[in-house]
């Protein structure tokens, strides 16, 4: 099976990393390659890093509401760069309404609090083809 490569980071001023780091570890345990870009990213930084690293999926971790405001720009940049990289979002602040809104926007998958490792791994494998 192909080794899946995923970029993970947070955007804006969101300094909470517990989720991003523990999800990174889970995905590495599942045999995926994680490019961890940490905090203080802009949408452009995430997309450019994703392209340069040749990742299969870009994962945004969030523990503030900023991601909702950054997301349209991020999705737009993916199109502009013809990147064809699916975007997934995870975080405990995501509510059911947010999830609907994100999917409508074009986010490929959303993982709220309580998502299990198995669910995430399965969804990412499906997205990475």
């Amino acid at each position: 099976m192909k080794r899946i490569k995923i970029l993970i980071g947070t955007m804006g001023m969101d300094q909470h990393e517990v989720g991003a780091l523990s999800v990174s570890r889970m995905l590495m345990d599942a045999g995926m390659e994680v490019v961890y870009v940490g905090r203080f990213n802009t949408p452009k930084k995430m997309v450019v890093a994703g392209i340069e690293e040749g990742v299969d999926v870009i994962g945004i971790s969030c523990h503030s509401w900023e991601y909702l405001h950054f997301m349209p720009e991020l999705l737009d940049l993916v199109k502009q760069y013809n990147a064809n990289i699916p975007i997934v979002v995870g975080g405990s602040v995501i509510t059911p309404k947010d999830e609907t809104q994100l999917i409508e926007m074009g986010v490929a998958a959303v993982f709220g609090s309580g998502s299990t490792k198995a669910e995430m791994v399965e969804a990412l494998r499906a997205l990475a083809g």
Partner: peptide, 13 residues
Amino acid sequence: FDNAMNRYGREVE
């Protein structure tokens, strides 16, 4: 801190 975050995530998971 990274180790603590990882450990906590695993314990909950």
